[in-house]
Amino acid sequence: MDYTPVWLTLKLASVTTLLLLIIGAPLAWWLARTRCWCRHAISAVVALPLVLPPTVLGFYLLIALGIHGPLGELATYFGGQPLAFTFTGLVIGSVIYSMPFMIQPLQNAFEAIGDRPLEVAATLRASPWDTFFTVVLPLARPGLLAGATLSFAHTVGEFGVILMIGGSIPGETKVLSVAIYDHVEMLEYEQAHILSAGMLLFSFTVLLVMQLLHRRLQRVGL
């Protein structure tokens, strides 16, 4: 039994979630605070992966990341290789694909905070940056937790996009969902069973822990 796809999947989901936290927090904050009309367009773009078939997204990503695509050319310009069929390519795809799962809970949490805590912080001599880290993020903790869990779980369960841009290279792009698909293709039902059951258990545990954490946070008034 080869467990490489399991580790690869966890690595992909962790890196993706981390990047989404870094990109998503400022973006969600901007979307929650700005009055610019363009926020509607940006929101719509961010939400696209919710409605598009993963194959469509995967197809465009394949072109963009490939040797003649803009991102692929950028990577080769800096001495790298084209990004399609690489782990980096998977990360880029996953970040885009899971973006709405990070942005939406975060944006809701930021909007729920309102203006008052920001004004209070300003009268207590906290600069806007200081306020963001010491007031906004702690107050948005339930949103951060929900966003991180959903993005992680969603990346773990990703299949269509990865198949389009990553293929099935062992140790590089062959993640769990693809491995299961391959096992089934080759009628190796036993291995498919082990991986599927493991994934089922994992997903259930994540969601359960999430629920319990959320309840505890609510009890202490957050």
Partner: peptide, 10 residues
Amino acid sequence: THQRSLGYVF
């Protein structure tokens, strides 16, 4: 506001 020496009670 954060550079003004004032206190504010809402």
